[in-house]
Amino acid sequence: MPGIIGKKIGMTSLFTADGKYTPVTLIQAGPCVVTQVKTVETDGYAAVQLGYGEKKLKRTTKAEAGHFQKASTSPKKKVAEFDVEGVSFNLGDTVDASLFVEGEFIDVVGTSKGKGFQGVVKRHNFAGVGGQTHGQHNRARHPGSIGAASWPSRVFKGMRMAGRMGGNRVKIQNLIVLRVIAEKNLLVVSGSVPGAKNSYVLIEK
């Protein structure tokens, strides 16, 4: 399944051809440059490495600069690897939004927005305490019991508790490509996509 690196532009909504009003995300998909082609002979597996987003040469390490030099391209901000099932790429090729066709199902990977330290109600969808009365004091959004006393007399590993939320790698599956605007390298994708505006996302076929 090949893919492409993109940038989340933002969300809006529109009517699809069958008259349904759908929320959509706009993604700037590419143009990406093939910075490395991995083959079974040399690397043990087949893949293609793409680069996206311009980076100043001054801010590039010499090792990276050399790597991009090999593909005879400028340094890129974001580099990611994709499968090459059924497609062949050459070093230095450009890959753009025309990789996708309208109506196609795609997966989008991104880093979700960081939410900071959150309680169990927001973080794990706990219901909280039902009401305000009947002896409840200040525990409306508390987790309740986290274990029993005599057995197991400990808290099980993985018990869902409050903590840092968001900022994880998240993949949203089976989004539909509603429109491909090839000349501007734009993808219009149904539904939402993880991450903030202007954050990098990986779009996989």
Partner: peptide
């Protein structure tokens, strides 16, 4: 709003 979103919404405008 982003220019690109405006571009997409041009049709509806």
């Amino acid at each position: 709003m982003s220019e690109l979103i405006k571009f997409l919404e041009q049709e509806s405008t």
